[in-house]
């Protein structure tokens, strides 16, 4: 049971982080290879505030999210005007710089040895409620003026500007929202593992999240959610393969990306309308 619960909790935490990548990559077409750094900021800020300064939980979590958003502002301001490929380079550098900073400020962060003894506050209900709330916020964002304008600038930035869209502002807002979500996933992570180390937040995590968004279908939020669940549970089902586990996992991901270039869901979304269409079809089938 604990095993099932802990896997669900990690899936939920990963999902909230991946939602941030979905906003940046899926919706806006940018690449952030430093997204895990926001997770680190969220986790570390809340942990240090609670452990070292006895700040109560709610303000500590709020401050952690604010800190992640400030960091997003810091990276976002100079980068949103850059070309897309430069953004991925700058965010990659930012992410690694945060890891180096955590290593160097050993008197606050414990350096490479990490912070231990963080209270375990993340429980299954907390994660489930968080996932529902974060997912609802992202669905709203996608289906509002923000989401439409993001998709517009992703498909044609010049045309988007010509339709009166302030693309820099929009990218920055999306970046901040994504930073807040990813920061919050870091808070949940720290409060679940009770231990944080800089090495857990390197660019590989950011790259994995980007892969998840692509496997799901860059334009589909439903696909992103499905791919997160699939790719966090897949390694568990592959445990029987022991040392071949990682290799098999990679082959499966490659096959999906190769044979479904648009991802599992492509651009489709699970909405009441498509659901009705699906149900309608199965009802008619037996006749």
């Amino acid at each position: 049971m604990d095993y099932f619960v802990s896997t669900v909790i990690f899936t939920g935490i990963a999902l909230i982080g991946v939602l941030g990548v979905y906003l940046i990559t899926g919706l806006t077409g940018l690449f952030s290879l430093g997204q895990a750094a926001f997770m680190a900021i969220g986790g570390y800020v809340s942990a240090v505030l609670i452990r070292n300064y006895n700040v109560p939980v709610v303000p500590a979590v709020a401050l952690a999210i604010v800190a992640a958003m400030l960091a997003a502002l810091l990276v976002g301001l100079p980068t949103v005007r850059l070309r897309r490929d430069y953004i991925s380079l700058v965010t990659l550098g930012f992410g690694e710089a945060i890891v180096a900073l955590l290593n160097n400020s050993a008197n606050i962060t414990g350096g490479a040895m990490g912070i231990s003894g963080i209270p375990q506050l993340t429980t299954l209900p907390v994660v489930l409620v968080s996932v529902v709330v974060c997912l609802a916020l992202v669905i709203l964002y996608k289906n509002s003026k923000y989401g439409r304008q993001c998709l517009a600038l992703r498909s044609d930035e010049l045309a988007a500007k010509s339709m009166g869209i302030d693309v820099y502002r929009l990218k920055l807002i999306t970046f901040l929202f994504a930073g807040a979500l990813t920061g919050y996933s870091g808070v949940l992570f720290g409060f679940y593992t009770t231990y944080l180390e800089p090495a857990a937040f390197n660019w590989i995590i950011s790259a994995e999240w980007t892969i998840i968004v692509f496997v799901g279908g860059v334009n589909s939020l439903t696909g992103t959610v499905l791919a997160t669940i699939l790719l966090t549970w897949l390694p568990e089902f592959l445990r029987f393969a022991s040392e071949w586990r990682v290799a098999i996992y990679c082959v499966i991901v490659l096959l999906i990306v190769n044979y479904r270039t648009a991802g599992i869901m492509g651009e489709r979304e699970l909405s009441p309308k498509t659901l009705r269409r699906l149900l309608g079809r199965t009802k008619e089938a037996p006749r």
């Binding site: 003026k145 439409r148 304008q149 998709l151 517009a152 498909s155 045309a159 988007a160 009166g164 869209i165």
Partner: peptide, 20 residues
């Protein structure tokens, strides 16, 4: 230069969105 990821209606809505 239409917005490929959006529906026909959303393409038009997007141009009105900056005034929202």
């Amino acid at each position: 230069r239409l917005f490929k990821g959006l529906s026909v209606l959303e393409n038009v809505m997007t141009a009105a969105d900056p005034y929202s």
